[in-house]
Design a protein around this nucleic acid. Structure first.
Lengths: 128, 128
DNA sequence: TGCAAAATTGACTTTTACGTAAATCCAATG
DNA sequence: CATTGGATTTACGTAAAAGTCAATTTTGCA
């Protein structure tokens, strides 16, 4: 496990631009270390980037991802805060379960569309 | 099963604006009938709207949704077209399977974050 | 130490997915 | 028949998430 990654290493690994990483930093999603002005990404930062991109792929906005990230940080000490956070987490879980239903439905639809194509090809005497 | 729905009926049912429905029409996703200038949405249009919104919730762009919709339409007669379509379908399926993995991972993370909150609350003597 | 390659910053632009506003049209209703 | 209340069209506006560009800085290393 490496100690630090440079910004370009991460852009290559994840297929994103430096602008994107700096954008996420401006938005408060990540906080890489600095040596002078140069950014040094720790393994935890790298892990966080992975989570951010996962969130983006799931269609969450940067603001929503920030909310989720807050959740991963050390839970706060105050009871009210903790309860609020639980509410947020449960909300996100519901969102994701809805997405999962959407996903399964769409996958089924795609499967039947695929079948229709294959059948049509068979009618035309093409072997798939 | 109703014959036609008005634009406002659909906006109410799906919680979207008329602007959104007209936008999808401009983008070629739906083609409601007309009586004079007034739009009449058939059950099939309504079904399509449902699919579009599902796609949006899954994070697909309108352009991507258009591609998927093309697939549902009667499969074309030409072999090359059919094969291309199959490729597209399989691509979308891969996208969705990736999303499903992302989703499961994120759900797990949320579950452990939830657990952490509950534990912390227990430490503080709060019964959840 | 000198210099090319890499990194940073800030300003501006682009794309997507609608929102908003204004003007017009149409049908029904009192 | 005048009005009222949707519906339509057209045009412009905007927020989010980056991309692009140009002007410096910094760094690595020969």
């Amino acid at each position: 496990m490496r100690d630090y990654y440079s910004i370009t290493e991460l852009t290559r690994e994840f297929g994103i631009s430096t602008r994107t990483l700096r954008f996420y930093e401006d938005e408060g999603l990540i906080n890489p270390m600095r040596r002078g002005r140069t950014r040094l990404y720790r393994p935890s930062d790298r892990q966080l980037v992975r989570q951010i991109l996962r969130g983006r792929r799931l269609g969450f906005s940067v603001a929503e991802i920030r909310e989720i990230i807050e959740v991963y940080k050390a839970p706060p000490g105050e009871v009210g805060q903790l309860k609020l956070m639980l509410t947020h987490i449960e909300q996100k879980q519901q969102d994701l379960r809805q997405k999962r239903r959407d996903l399964e439905d769409t996958l089924e639809e795609l499967a039947s569309a695929e079948e229709a194509c294959v059948e049509r090809l068979a009618e035309l005497g093409v072997n798939t």
